[in-house]
Nucleic acid binder design. Structure first.
Length: 489
RNA sequence: CGGGACGUAGCGCAGUCCGGUAGCGCACCUGAAUGGGGUUCAGGGGGUCGCGGGUUCAAAUCCCGCCGUCCCGACCA
């Protein structure tokens, strides 16, 4: 009840007090999304969808640079397709939505609403691939998928979500493995550079692997509460699907061969990652590249004669910024105090706010307030004449600083443990606990014990290893690799 | 799917025990003043009390049934 009452107060609940309530409240208040009448589904409001659009456009460019091309496959998939790969069906069947009726009649074969598109895309690839000259085949699609989840959380887990799923087929194992890692690196760079969210990169344990994959790789971020969030995955599928779907080609020796495949994706979950990795007590803090409003101009005046000088100056600044390619808004709403507007735009995460009042017009300056800092550090005066240059430079600095802050938080929240008791004690505490960097022998029994006793799971086995061996945190047997464990979303 | 709570204005809630004119805060609309960090005052609009049935002169309130939502546990991008 206390949680509900907070939503009605003016102030955002402090992030540190109740992270879950804070997160929900921010998503709703900043108008990123709203609940829908359909259980488990959310509505993306314009401010939230704009972030997705910016992110999507940039990632789409980067994906195309690797040689993949976009296509679009149907939402409906024959139920029998899902059943062709045994691991795959086992993993997805429980959460699949099934269409049994259409046109007023029961369908001869039920259709599933795609939870992911491996099966239908591989089915089509089988038709399209005959020769080694048809390879590699690299496809990507931007689509919605449905997974019937029992528990949902805004952006992080919803019954329907938007994503990008890449599917590639290659002549050799080596080439497919290389593609898997290439895309993993595309995701790492994208999430770190564009969203300013630092991640750890690595391989998933067998238990966390994508159903049907030989190997799954992921990038994992750490959220503001110390819990981990999987931000993107890249799977090496081996020949599991090509054997199930008979996807074969004739090689240059005229021998029939099964193709080697990959799939990789990121979803609207990244919006949740942005909120949780950067947000603070005042609300959202958007990385400039994805902010639908990068800067807002707030004119300040009391009397009509002040408005007469301030408003034209504010409009001139707005025009200059817009012409410089900066996504700008002019907040000339009447009847709201400047203080209210400041708080409002801070809550919505706008990176730079520009205050223009009579004093500023007189001195030919404007007050710039940057969202990545607080207090006196956040405000500075800049000449109105070159406002666009100042804002542009500031946006770049903010991007760097948001990443640096998130990186520092991740480093501070990553701890090495070499005895199980202290690890367990640390993870048992309330809150996330951050990343635990530990030696693990690779035995699923040890992994299960950790999960059951601490709720932490193996997030990733980092690609970069020191090379030195140690003893497994749980069983004490020799372990050749370190793994990151954390409580995850 | 198991355990708990809840459903009354757009949102958050009181009223339910003990039946008797539908209430508060926020938001919204109008007006005036205010305006460099969440303004103030005045006036105003808005509800088949989740749905269906029953008891009663009378039901938000009591009884029965249904539906839905949220929280906690097992599975998941």
């Amino acid at each position: 009840m206390a949680e509900k009452q907070k939503q009605n107060e003016k102030k955002v609940p402090p992030r540190s007090e109740d992270f879950a309530a804070w997160y929900n409240d921010i998503c709703l208040r900043a108008e990123l999304a709203d609940y829908s009448p359909v259980r488990g589904c959310i509505v993306f409001r314009p401010d939230g969808f704009a972030i997705w659009e910016e992110l999507r456009d940039e990632l789409d460019r980067r994906i195309k640079q690797t040689g993949a091309r976009n296509a679009y496959f149907p939402l409906f998939i024959p139920q029998s397709f899902l059943q062709k790969e045994s691991q795959h069906v086992e993993g997805f069947a429980p959460e699949v939505a099934v269409v049994t009726h259409g046109g007023g009649k029961e369908l001869e074969e039920p259709l599933i609403v795609r939870p992911t598109s491996e099966t239908i895309i591989h089915h089509m690839m089988t038709q399209w691939i005959q020769s080694h000259r048809d390879l590699p085949m690299m496809l990507n699609q931007w689509a919605n998928v449905v997974r019937w989840e029992m528990r949902t959380r805004m952006f992080l887990r919803t019954a329907e979500f938007l994503w990008q799923e890449g599917h590639t087929a290659h002549a050799t194992r080596e080439e497919a493995e290389r593609e898997t890692l290439t895309m993993l690196e595309v995701y790492r760079k994208f999430v770190e550079e564009y969203l300013a969210i630092p991640v750890v990169v690595g391989r998933k344990s067998a238990a966390e692997r994508f159903p049907g994959a030989v190997e799954t790789y992921a990038i994992e971020g750490l959220m503001g509460d110390g819990r981990a969030l999987q931000c993107g995955t890249s799977h090496f599928l081996g020949q599991n699907f090509s054997k199930a779907f008979e996807t074969r080609y004739l090689d240059d020796q005229n021998q029939l061969q099964y193709v080697w495949q990959t799939s990789w994706g990121v979803s609207t979950r990244l919006l949740g990652a942005i909120v949780m990795a950067h947000g603070d007590d005042q609300g959202l803090r958007l990385p400039p590249p994805v902010a639908s409003t990068q800067t807002v101009v707030v004119p300040i005046f009391r009397k009509p004669e002040e408005a007469a000088v301030v408003l034209p100056a504010a409009r001139a600044a707005f025009d200059a910024l817009t012409h410089a390619g900066i996504r700008t808004r002019l907040d000339d709403r009447e009847g709201l105090t400047p203080g209210f507007k400041f708080n409002d735009w801070e809550m919505r995460g706008v990176p730079v706010r520009i205050e223009i009042g009579p004093r500023d017009v007189a001195s030919g300056e404007a007050v710039l307030a940057r969202r990545d800092k607080s207090g006196v550090e956040a405000k500075s005066k800049k000449p109105l004449a070159s406002i666009a240059d100042s804002v542009k430079a500031m946006l770049a600095e903010i991007q760097q600083s948001l990443f640096a802050q998130a990186k520092a938080a991740m480093v501070a929240n990553t701890r090495q443990f070499d005895d199980y008791a202290s690890f367990k004690k640390h993870m048992e505490g309330s809150g996330g606990g951050g990343f635990a960097d530990v030696y693990w022998c690779g035995n699923p029994v040890c992994e299960t014990r950790i999960r059951e006793e601490t709720k932490a799971t193996c997030r990733v086995i980092p690609l970069e290893q020191s090379g030195t061996a140690g003893k497994c945190l749980v069983c004490g047997e020799s372990a050749s690799e370190r793994a990151y464990f954390a409580k995850a979303y």
